[in-house]
């Protein structure tokens, strides 16, 4: 089936309550019901939107299974709308992951487990979570989609792999802490803008960046969610530092036009890249 070519997306720049899943589920349900009423096709929530970010020892206490009651509750609403939601996933081996689920047609269709867990500077994720081991796209009603979470975006190999799998939409979910106030824009926001614009342009996709707001442990999350078109041009942008709901209309035809102008994705020499990477790996192993 040819995917629907136009869709209305909504990015919810919310402020979850730290460690209070019940309160956060209510926030999500309310936002999803409103989006359904507003004819939104796809609603996106930030990283760890159901739990909050600085969980530390709370992580196992708020963790859930994909087949558990919270996901089932949200899945019921996904008969009418695509949903991307952030949570702590526990697997059958009692490992814990920072995860983002995609729900559509009444079921969880895909889970991305955060691959890159920052454990440096102000971050301590590797202490509490296990790193994901997969980079896969998913087939949505509106075409192929890739989901990455925050630090994943700082490793260009991650969107590269997704792009080579075939991707229209890069969903970038974050709980990005704001730091650096030497300029009128938070330094982190400037860096993100560069990275996301570059990905949109080089991989010729829509980038949907959904970042949270609010404060935890004295740290602010800066928001600034945005949608960037496949030409690398801003389609919509939410304000920084305050809760917001950002809507945008996406059109697959825009991706097609950009790729007609310059078939970068198609021209990519995957075999060459793999060969050279294997050589690098061989040489490193010999060191």
């Amino acid at each position: 089936m040819r995917p629907a070519s136009k869709l209305k997306v909504r990015l919810v720049q919310l402020n979850p309550r730290l460690g209070d899943v019940e309160a956060n589920v209510d926030l999500h349900m309310e936002a999803i019901k409103q989006a359904i009423a507003d004819d939104v096709s796809l609603i996106i929530f930030p990283e760890l939107s159901l739990t909050g970010y600085y969980l530390r020892d709370l992580a196992p206490e708020v963790a859930m299974r994909v087949e558990g009651p919270v996901m089932s509750q949200l899945a019921r609403l996904s008969k009418e709308i695509g949903i991307v939601v952030g949570f702590v996933e526990e697997d059958e081996q009692f490992s814990f992951f920072i995860a983002q689920a995609y729900l559509e047609g009444g079921a969880v269709r895909h889970v991305h487990r955060k691959v890159y867990l920052p454990t440096y500077g102000m971050f301590d994720e590797g202490r509490y979570f296990t790193a994901g081991r997969r980079l896969r796209t998913l087939r949505s009603k509106w075409g192929p989609m890739g989901i990455l979470i925050c630090e994943d975006l700082w490793h260009p190999s991650a969107p590269y792999v997704l792009s080579q799998s075939g991707m229209y939409y890069l969903i970038a979910c974050a709980s990005s802490p704001g730091r650096g106030i030497h300029d009128q824009h938070i330094a982190t926001a400037g860096t993100y803008a560069n990275i996301l614009t570059t990905y949109a342009q080089l991989f010729q996709v829509y980038v949907l960046f959904c970042n949270r707001v609010g404060y935890e442990e004295g740290v602010c999350f800066w928001g600034g969610s945005c949608v960037i078109g496949p030409q690398g041009v801003s389609v919509a942008a939410a304000p920084q530092l305050e809760p917001a709901v950002l809507d945008a209309e996406l059109d697959v035809a825009a991706i097609r036009r950009v790729r007609l102008q310059a078939p970068l994705t198609d021209d990519e020499n995957l075999d060459l890249t793999i060969r050279e990477l294997e050589r690098v790996r061989r040489e490193r192993a010999e060191d």
Binding site: R17, L18, G19, D20, Y54, R56, D57, L58, E216, E217
Partner: peptide
């Protein structure tokens, strides 16, 4: 090794 956030549940 008892490490909860100060903003626990807030």
């Amino acid at each position: 090794d008892f490490r909860y956030p100060r903003d626990w549940g807030r």
